[in-house]
């Protein structure tokens, strides 16, 4: 059941041209950024070689690229999550799901997974670009893997939050703006905190992504992302259930 809904969500993303445009534009931005970083790395390579323990291409090119992707995800996810429930409610198609023999949990997870597949594709396409470096140099697989995992977890937390906001309203645009505002608020919390141990900072998903970005697999961060996603998915399920009760 979950997969049926996920499959439908995923397919419906690809029937609208805007998804293709977004994917193409993203790929262009990644390529631009990737080449710029690569260019800078090649220029300093001679000097790096004189260092006793020089850092490689993975840290110099891939890590910043993934850092940018994390930022782009923040702005991208609301565009996709806004439709998930708000649009169904506006078009009255939510009734179809509500009167079908599927539980609220199935609906929410199906939509979550459907969108996660798309975001994973974006993350994978970005990683593929980095993998082309393997033809010229030794890559730090550990760093690449933590970055990939970090990005997927980050995307999951964003989608969960976006899904929840989308379930609160019947206007997709309101959902998009609301989600974006929350993401920016969380991001500002991280940026504005001077102190590294600031508790406010701990609330921001982006700050937890930092350690993944430098290749650190920290169980606290892992736990944060899991709790964050699960909490908002549960809230969404609850919200859908209340929909049956109060509307």
């Amino acid at each position: 059941m979950i997969l049926t809904i996920a499959h439908k969500e995923f397919r419906s993303l690809f029937v609208i041209p805007s998804t293709w445009f977004i994917l193409a534009a993203l790929q262009f931005i990644f390529a631009w950024f990737f080449l710029a970083r690569l260019d800078a790395f090649i220029q300093v390579q001679a000097q790096l070689a004189q260092l006793a323990n020089p850092f490689g291409a993975t840290l110099a090119v891939a890590a910043p690229l993934f850092g940018t992707l994390a930022l782009i995800l923040m702005m991208l996810t609301p565009i996709f999550t806004m439709r998930l429930i708000a649009e169904e409610r506006r078009n009255q198609t939510l009734t179809l799901l509500m009167s079908s023999p599927v539980s609220d949990c199935h609906i929410v997870l199906g939509k979550f997974i459907g969108l996660m597949i798309l975001l994973s594709l974006i993350i994978a396409s970005c990683s593929l670009m980095v993998l082309t470096l393997a033809s010229g140099t030794q890559l730090d697989t550990g760093l690449l893997l933590t970055n990939g995992l970090g990005l997927i977890l980050l995307a999951a937390s964003y989608v969960a939050l976006g899904l929840y906001v989308s379930s609160l309203t019947a206007q997709p645009v309101v959902a998009a703006i609301g989600t974006l505002a929350i993401f920016f608020g969380l991001w500002l919390m991280e940026v504005s905190a001077v102190d590294h141990d600031n508790t406010w900072r701990a609330l921001a998903p982006t700050s937890h992504f930092q350690s993944f970005n430098i290749g650190l697999l920290n169980s606290t961060d892992l736990l944060f992302f899991l709790l964050f996603s699960i909490a908002f998915l549960l809230l969404t399920i609850r919200r859908l259930h209340n929909n049956r009760l109060y509307s």
């Binding site: 419906s12 609208i16 078009n91 009255q92 009167s99």
Partner: peptide, 15 residues
């Protein structure tokens, strides 16, 4: 065991 046609058609217009 139920089939339901609501008042407003629950159709995904782009499918």
């Amino acid at each position: 065991r139920i089939g339901f046609l609501p008042e407003t058609l629950p159709l995904y217009r782009d499918m």
